[in-house]
């Protein structure tokens, strides 16, 4: 087995062997699917014509807080428990350890995200009856693909920040207020919108049909995949930051 493979295998054992993993991923699923069902119900009742694709994504904005917390806590636990010293004694290459941690975090998050997102989509659309978005159309596939990338990258971004600040608590207290903006729609407040729309949790909203194109308040100054592109940059920055912190600091 390659050196990175062995380090990743160790991270895989770590993520499987704590109870918080299944608990948090289950909570993510419950919030995503459960709230998705409720939201879609209100869509179905609404008189006004709304973008039916959006019905499947609103609940994920709240659910993503749980997914991000999982990613932060898996990376941050190394530092809060002191396990990082044992980890680095076993895998002395800091870069390899960090890569393995992010790889496994990414794989677990991506796996959970695709399952929950698709389940949420079908749950929501099933309530919309005739107004349901057709599954086999590119617009739907694009939104699901974009949402999946959004959930995965946003979690990796958060995990990178956790390594940068070497703490679960600090990372969450910095990230959650910012990430809460989107679930509360505060990113649309006029005073902060010009800047807030570029924050990492906001840039995936166009592709998920959670913005209103062209609207002065709910619109965005970028397109769906430009938004994902910005998220890629955010994620890359957080991963580079985490990697530098990992290499520089004493364990």
């Amino acid at each position: 087995m390659s050196a990175l493979g062995a380090a990743a295998a160790a991270e895989w054992v770590k993520v499987r062997s704590v109870r918080s993993t299944p608990i948090m991923l289950a909570a993510f699923a419950v919030v995503g699917v459960g709230l998705g069902w409720v939201v879609a119900g209100s869509f179905a009742d609404a008189a006004r014509e709304q973008d039916s694709l959006a019905a499947g994504f609103f609940s994920l904005l709240l659910g993503q807080l749980v997914l991000i917390t999982f990613a932060v806590q898996f990376a941050g636990a190394e530092f809060s428990t002191g396990t990082v010293r044992v980890s680095l004694a076993a895998v002395p290459s800091r870069g390899r350890f960090f890569a393995a941690k992010m790889l496994v975090t990414g794989l677990v998050v991506a796996g959970a995200a695709v399952v929950v997102e698709v389940a949420t989509f079908f749950t929501a659309q099933s309530r919309l009856g005739e107004r349901a978005a057709p599954f086999m159309e590119w617009e739907t596939v694009e939104a699901l693909l974009g949402g999946w990338i959004h959930l995965t990258l946003l979690s990796l971004f958060a995990a990178g920040v956790a390594v940068m600040v070497r703490s679960t608590v600090v990372a969450l207290s910095v990230l959650l207020p910012i990430l809460f903006l989107s679930s509360q729609g505060l990113g649309n407040v006029d005073a902060i919108r010009p800047v807030a729309q570029y924050l990492p949790d906001q840039v995936g909203m166009v592709v998920m049909h959670l913005t209103v194109p062209g609207d002065p308040q709910f619109g965005r100054d970028y397109g769906p995949w430009e938004g994902i592109g910005i998220l890629v940059l955010w994620t890359a920055a957080a991963l580079v930051g985490g990697w530098i912190a990992m290499r520089r600091r004493d364990a």
Binding site: A6, A7, A9, A10, E11, W12, V13, K14, R16, S17, V18, R19, S20, A77, T81, G82, T83, V86, S87, A90, V91
Partner: peptide, 17 residues
């Protein structure tokens, strides 16, 4: 050590690494 992990699992991840 991670308090939520069993002794065997702690050694298993070390062995895997």
């Amino acid at each position: 050590l991670h308090p939520g992990r069993s002794a065997r699992d702690h050694l298993l991840w070390l062995a895997a690494s």
